[in-house]
């Protein structure tokens, strides 16, 4: 299993340079690892630990908290169907059932060809177009059963590759500049103990 490639390490260093404390780049780096491999591999986590001067356990401890970070391989297309309240009121469970039928796997599972993983998710903030779903975090609203079938067929045929990058690729726009405002990178940030008594404020 791969560590981060030289090109990814370069991007990682640019990201680390954006924060007063390197550890703040941990989640962006985990996304980077997921962009490279489609999931977050143990080797990538070790590599990230080295880059940030953390232990692999610290990296893993953070990674396991977050739903978007997959510590096991997932399908090329992660289909995330919202069933929360606004979608529930507009047929989300019926859509989920249909999706499971169409793809032949239950929520949480991946199709045998490795193309699709279905997951049931909480609100994705597209409630005005319920029921809705995301594929690799590209959003599709007002999804009918036929619309779902069409979407899956288009994805499987590779006709949506411009709109839906493979799983793991989140933000395709790169930040163009580093820090130029001059603060507060070199400034010493005085760490304050978490339980220092302060005046109570309401």
């Amino acid at each position: 299993m791969p560590r981060l490639s030289a090109q990814m390490v370069e991007r990682a260093r640019d990201m680390i340079a954006l924060y007063p404390h390197a550890r703040s780049a941990l989640i962006p780096l985990l996304h980077l690892a997921q962009e490279q491999d489609g999931w977050v591999t143990p080797e990538a986590m070790e590599h990230i630990a080295e880059l940030l001067d953390l232990t692999p356990a610290e990296v893993r401890g953070t990674a396991t908290f977050y739903d978007m970070l997959f510590l096991e391989p997932t399908g090329k297309y992660l289909v995330s169907i919202c069933t929360n309240i606004a979608c529930l009121l507009n047929g989300a469970y019926e859509l989920l059932e249909h999706a499971e039928e169409k793809l032949g796997v239950k929520a949480g599972a991946t199709t045998p060809d490795g193309n699709f993983t279905i997951e049931e998710v909480e609100c994705i903030a597209l409630c005005g177009s319920a029921p809705c779903l995301a594929v690799n975090w590209r959003f599709f609203g007002n999804v009918s059963n036929d619309g779902f079938d069409h979407l899956v067929d288009e994805l499987a045929a590779g006709r949506l590759e411009g709109d839906v990058p493979p799983h793991g690729t989140l933000c395709r726009v790169r930040r163009a500049v580093g820090l130029v405002g001059g603060a507060p990178h070199d400034a010493v940030v005085e760490p304050v103990q978490e339980h220092t008594p302060v005046e109570e404020q309401h």
């Binding site: 954006l18 989640i27 996304h31 940030l52 977050y66 978007m68 001059g182």
Partner: peptide, 30 residues
Amino acid sequence: SIDLVVHPGAGAYICGEETALLESLEGKRG
């Protein structure tokens, strides 16, 4: 002068709570 950084979350409702959000921005569990 100032710098502005766009920082991505990673999927956890609780990170909307402002102190969890800060923990997350520090690279920790939310």
